[in-house]
Every structure is written in C-alpha cells, then in structure tokens.
Simulated assay, not measured.
Amino acid sequence: MDVGSLLARVTPTLRTFKSWVVRDARFTLQEGTGAFTRLAPDFSSEGRSMALGFPFVLGVPTLPGYQGRYMESVWVLGSARVPGRGGVPLGLGLGMNTAPADPLTDTQPGLSSPGFVRVRMAPTHHGLEGSPYVLHLTASSSEGAGSGLIHRSLKVLPFDPTGTAPVEIRGPFLPVPEGARYSPVDDEGGRRLRPPAAPALPPGTVLRAVFSNGAGRRWVVWLDVSRDSQGVRLPMPPAPLEDRTFQGNHLGSFASLELQAWSLREGGLPDGEPLLLEALTRDENLSRLGELGVAWSALVATP
C-alpha cells in the first residue's frame, strides 16, 4: 500500500474524523454487505467518540534520503501512551515532498512556507485523561525505505490552525541502513553481518536484522554499530534446526532480510545519553525499546 497516496486523499476530510476509545471492550462481529460476505466489528452499542478538534502545525526537520533522492512523504500519527498498555491513536497528519522533491515538505494550503505539516488530534478522553501525548513521524520512500522520529515532549494539545507557533520536532532523521549487508556463504569471511560503512549511522545506534524464510520463521540479530563496526559473524544453527538465513527450499535461495536502525537514548529524549546494546538486552524481552527509541529507520532488502 502506498501510505502517502492514501493519506493525501484522506487529509481534506480529517476534520470530519472522530476518535473512538473504549476500554477493554469486546466487539461482536456481524455480516457486512457487498459482493463478498465479510465480518466487521459492530460499534453500534458504543458511543464514546470525540472530534479531532485540535489542529496544529509541526516544524519537520530535513527529510532523509534514499538512493540519492529525498523521501516523498511524511505522515504523522498522534497518540496517547498508556504505560503497560501501549499507544492509542488520536490523530493524523501528512506532508508530501513532490513539488519540488527537496529536503523540506511542500508548502501546505494556509501555511507560510515549506517544512510545516498540519496535524489534527483529539484530546485524551474516556479513560485516557492524563496520559502523555506522543507524535510519531514517518518519512517514507516508494522504494521500501522509511525513517521515523518519536516526539514525547508534547504536554498539551495546542489549537493553532495557521501555524503561528509550530511545534518544533527535534531531529535529525536517522539515515536508512543502506549499505548494510550479509554474506551468507560459509567460507573465510562468510556468514558475516556488516553494518553500513561509517559514518552512515551515528554513535548510539543499534542495528536489528530480521531474516524471514519461506515458512515465515524469523531469526533476529542485533549489533552495536559503534562497537561492531566490522560486523559480526553469525553461528551455524545446531542440528536439527534449519538455517533461517535461507528460504528453506530445495534451490537454496537466501531468506528475505529487513534491516532496522534504532537510536536509543536514556529517558527516551533526544538529548539523553546514548544507550549501548547491553543496556537494552538486560531485559530479555527488549520491552523498553518503545520507551527508549527516539529515531529509527528501516529497509527491506535481500542478502
């Protein structure tokens, strides 16, 4: 799905959207209409909604690039974070970068200059009151690359439809892990996962490689780009386990590989101290990743 194209068509109607929050509700399913019978959630018994009544403007940092071109769109997801429960979406925004394709998003109607993106959100409501607001910015490329920023410093929702006092988002976007590679052949120097050549990713960045084989089974490998600048050698799996760096078919083709880069900071703030990979893996479930990440980037590739 081309998320940028979809949101571009949706943006003019955002003022008619509503936020719908129901705590721990179990929705029954009912048959829908159309050529194919389908089941859909039945919300008729629940009326807890609130309009996205707070329009405001973000100052978006310089957009990241991929394959020599700046990314074409930025979409914003505003949410409330509930500790131990996750995030609840409360609003949306979108900025395009096509006319021209340069480091800043295009000038939006009613705003004074490029680099500003209008967002509409609902306030926390129906049990979310007091939860902190979080803004997730995702710059995307049609070639399968993305880069995001996580802004946790929004204390209250401003009402600022014209952008007289835009919310400034701390950057920069994290570069896409372009140039990271895996050599799966088991010979001298083989089976080695290598990060992008310096200085593509800044210190304090961890690389997460996700191998997926034909049966949908995954193998996740983490490395610290500042410490493991030459990469890491991956062990052979013990018998009788399969080697998930291959698809598992009789042709011996390589598994698909998604590369993710994460910038982790103490307190989840851009000016916090960079965290080493060891600090993250002390929790065997990596449950603090969503709290400590301030920026990320991802690339779907093959070995």
Rank of each mutant, 00 (worst) to 15 (best):
M1A: 12
V3Y: 06
S5L: 14
L7I: 11
T11S: 11
L14V: 08
T16K: 09
K18W: 02
W20N: 14
R23F: 11
E31P: 08
T33G: 05
T33L: 10
G34V: 03
T37P: 02
S49V: 15
G53S: 14
F56M: 04
G59K: 07
V60H: 00
P64G: 03
P64M: 03
G68L: 04
G68N: 06
M71W: 04
S73F: 11
W75I: 01
L77W: 09
S79C: 13
R81C: 08
V82E: 12
G84R: 04
R85Q: 15
R85L: 15
P89H: 04
A99P: 01
T124E: 13
H125K: 06
H126C: 00
E129H: 04
S131E: 15
P132T: 06
H136V: 07
S142W: 02
S147V: 12
I150D: 00
R152W: 02
V156C: 03
G163L: 07
E168Y: 01
E168P: 00
G171S: 01
P175N: 14
P177N: 13
S183C: 03
P184R: 11
G189M: 08
R191S: 12
P199E: 07
A200R: 10
A200H: 01
G204A: 11
S212W: 00
G216E: 03
V221R: 06
W222R: 06
D224N: 13
R227L: 15
L234R: 02
A239H: 03
P240G: 06
T245E: 05
Q247G: 12
H250D: 13
G252Y: 09
L257C: 04
E258I: 02
Q260Y: 11
L269Q: 15
P270S: 06
D271A: 13
L275W: 06
E278V: 09
T281G: 08
E284L: 09
L289T: 11
G290M: 08
W296M: 09
A301V: 13
T302M: 10
